[in-house]
């Protein structure tokens, strides 16, 4: 997904947009930007500073700087939960654990090598089950005998699901098992940072109440989820951009802008 957050100098969010994903859509990040501008009733030149983050950050032609999603997420989460010490972000393609101290990122772990433990794992397995991604949480709530999915690999898990269903296991128990598998993987990875409360869960997968429940069980702490868990990275990026601008103004320096154009994102140029 492509997300855009426009923030005012006072720190208020002027508009926020979540655009579609996919290789072709990602290239069209400029359209999501335009939509955000339209909603905020702003024109592009009125934007003082643009921060790009996430996987596509290197290729955004209309950004002034690029900052990693790790720093942006930490910033965004800390703005929503000032006491946060541990943040877990489960996105469509990767999963991250963040250690945050006084609102700043101090350490991180990430899995960007393998679909297991990411939203992709649920996408693939939901398709196997013929279910919609957004229904998984509600379905798993009905589970009474959660099954154990022992395969950590997405492909093998798919096979395991099929064999479980053929044994007559209820769909909701399989779905609950999938949520548990994701939680085991992601929490296990994050433990390397020594998990301390307050714990916040973000990313698209945090919208799935079943995963939130499973993560809470593993961590044995309350787990907070922001109202819009997809946006914390973009919010963090906006705050960091605002900090850069306000910092420059305060020191009487010019805002460190780049030549930018609201154009399509170019990959593999």
């Amino acid at each position: 997904m492509t997300k855009v957050v426009i923030m005012s100098d006072g720190g208020d969010i002027c508009s926020q947009v979540i655009g579609p994903t996919g290789a072709e859509h990602r290239r069209l990040a400029n359209r999501v930007m335009q939509e955000a501008l339209d909603r905020a009733k702003l024109s592009f030149p009125e934007i003082s500073y643009v921060v790009a983050t996430g996987y596509g950050r290197l290729n955004v032609p209309f950004a002034d700087s690029e900052i990693t999603e790790l720093t942006c997420h930490a910033k965004g989460v800390a703005s929503l939960f000032p006491e946060v010490k541990t943040a877990i972000d489960i996105g469509g393609q990767d999963a991250k654990g963040l250690k945050i101290k006084s609102g700043k990122l101090i350490d991180f772990v990430m899995n960007d090598k393998c679909a297991a433990g990411t939203g992709r794992f649920l996408e693939v397995t939901a398709a196997t089950l013929g279910l919609r991604l957004e229904d998984l949480g509600t379905i798993s709530a009905k589970s009474t005998h959660r099954v154990k999915i022992s395969s950590t690999c997405t492909i093998f898990a798919q096979q395991e699901i099929v064999s479980r269903l053929s044994e007559g296991v209820a769909v909701e128990d399989v779905v609950a098992g999938l949520h548990d598998a994701i939680a085991v993987r992601v929490v296990g990875m994050t433990r390397r940072l020594k998990i301390e409360p307050v714990v916040v869960l973000t990313g698209g997968v945090a919208k799935n109440t079943g995963v939130v429940k499973a993560v809470r069980e593993k961590i044995e702490h309350e787990v907070f989820v922001p109202p819009n868990p997809l946006l914390s990275g973009a919010i963090g990026g906006a705050i960091l951009g605002r900090d850069i601008v306000l910092g420059a103004l305060k020191e009487g320096k010019p805002i460190p802008k780049k030549e930018r154009a609201l154009e399509e994102v170019t990959f593999f140029n």
């Binding site: 900052i67 990693t68 999603e69 790790l70 720093t71 700043k104 990122l105 101090i106 350490d107 991180f108 990430m110 960007d112 090598k113």
Partner: peptide
């Protein structure tokens, strides 16, 4: 290439 984000985030931590 995939290490880029990790290294960049580490540099951001140092600089923050």
């Amino acid at each position: 290439a995939p290490l880029r984000t990790r290294i960049q985030a580490f540099l951001e931590i140092i600089r923050s």
